[in-house]
Amino acid sequence: MIPLKITDLKKQYKSPRGESFEALKGVSFEIHPGEIFALLGPNGAGKTTLISTITTLEKPTAGVVEVFGTDVVKNPRYTKSCLGVVHQEVINTGFFSVEEILDFQSGFHGVKFNKERLDYLMHKLALYEHREKKVKQLSGGMKRRLMIAKALVHNPKLLLLDEPTAGVDVSLRETLWDFVRELQKEGMSILLTTHYLEEAEELCERVAIIHRGEIKALGATKEVVAQFSQKKMVLTLNADSPLNSKYLLKQEKNNYEFMVPTEMTFGELVESLRLSPALIKDVKIEEGRLEDAFMKVIDGGVR
């Protein structure tokens, strides 16, 4: 069954003054079972609004959100029991310790005698030695890990991660990504929103780029990169020779930098330059990156 299917989702906010703002303008996509799917977009693109409609914190203005084939508006109790959510903002519970928070969270999701799972999660996320502390005594990174543990107490089949690595240091980020991969191996489907494009590129099979409430690009990560980015090739020649090509970006002595479409091969470039292979001393090829594709989409290159 499809873990998450979003069809033509629209969300309009009305300000008290009567002005309306369209946060989502007809978004459609679906997540395949057992994949990590990334939703990329600049601040204010509508990522959090989208997550909020999946968790029923916000009601959609139009469109349908289905979690494992069930409409979240019609049967929220079922869909919520399949979901785990890590919110973007760190939640600060004043009264309770880490262990108590996780215990209540299990109860809210209808899980009884959950000590084993909680101990496992606390060990896994390095919270075990802090289990008696209150949230305000935890460091920023520990709070993040607590948020993730909270989302996993009931072993959800679909995990929503809303910028889980914002403000997290490099080593912790690596650990978290390893953990996410491990969860995927256990069969969990994961929707991730992030600013860190490199990681989305490394982790996710498929990505969608969302901008101003619209999906601008959607597909396998490699394809999106190929579609919207360019490859850089630097040729070092034996001798300075006048080259004329629409792909030429700049020349420094006998180093020539070219920007070519991702699908173009090195051979094709050489052929188009009518260059004798004997002249070529060295070659450097840099594959296009998701970041370039992202910038191109956001800057309005794609309509």
């Binding site: 979901l83 903002e89 600060n92 809210f108």
Partner: peptide, 10 residues
Amino acid sequence: GDLEDIRVAP
């Protein structure tokens, strides 16, 4: 902020 936890729970 933990009131949202209750809303998100079944």
